[in-house]
Design a protein around this nucleic acid. Structure first.
Lengths: 136, 136
DNA sequence: GTAGCTGCAAACTCTTTGCAACTCT
DNA sequence: AGAGTTGCAAAGAGTTTGCAGCTAC
């Protein structure tokens, strides 16, 4: 029983076969897969799963805040399991996504929002870059 | 002749009637309108304009980097004219978008990217919040 | 037993595109 | 004159949904 499965059960979800597969795919993923990618990986475990179920499960998990849906300036969504708060650096050449955290950044964002008269509820920060050539 | 029109001409675009209308809508907008919204505002000036033209024009302007396309975690895109670099605070209750700049933030982001071995090409920062209750 | 879940297919939303007609330059 | 642009309608991509049957609890 993975932690994610347990959190789904706690939320009152039935632990069906398709869900177990989708949750396993999400747990195993180290990238930030699209719905299509989750669907393909799920099919390698059980090829009777329908993409509608993948969409429904991911939406459900997003509502329960067990996963986070990202847009990344693409025409489709990508998902990741909710772990500690972090941000993304996206490699413009390869599409690879790297995660990072930075405490100064967190403080600064909270401060900016408050100065503008807002309580900060959520926020996204994405850096898009290219690998630096190694010097020398 | 607006500055935006001039920049389009400089880029080699023909200044047709539909384009003039769309550019005026963009120039007049103080919000960050969706394609649909640009289309509706354009129609109040010239109701023969087609939404395909709005899509094509906005894509073109985005390619020329005269406007910026945003996703804001919605299922559609919003556009704004490229002015100085800034970020967005989105009011979760009203959907209103406020702009801000912050020099410390810029320095910090550049530093983070470089420490991760990347040249920072682009980045987005969005804060989502709710108006603070006025104290007392 | 039953509320919730599933697969399927159809529908929906947002966006892009082929085409013939038209229009800036 | 000619390349670029337009409106229209159809197509495409991603996502959601109605439904009848199925399944975890």
């Amino acid at each position: 029983m993975t932690e994610l499965e347990q959190r789904c059960i706690d939320a009152g979800l039935k632990m069906t076969a398709p869900r177990k597969v989708i949750l396993k795919v999400l747990t195993d993923a180290t990238d930030h897969p699209s719905v299509e990618t989750v669907y393909e990986r799920a099919k390698t475990i059980d090829n009777t799963i329908s993409i509608a179920t993948v969409y429904r499960t991911l939406s459900l998990l997003d509502e329960l805040e067990l996963v986070t849906r990202h847009e990344f300036n693409e025409s489709f969504s990508r998902y990741e399991i909710n772990m500690e708060h972090h941000h993304h650096l996206i490699d413009l050449d390869s599409g690879a996504v790297y995660e990072f955290q930075n405490e100064d950044l967190e403080k600064l964002k909270k401060k900016i929002a408050e100065e503008m008269g807002f309580e900060l509820v959520d926020h996204t920060l994405e850096l898009y870059g290219r690998k630096l050539k190694k010097k020398k």
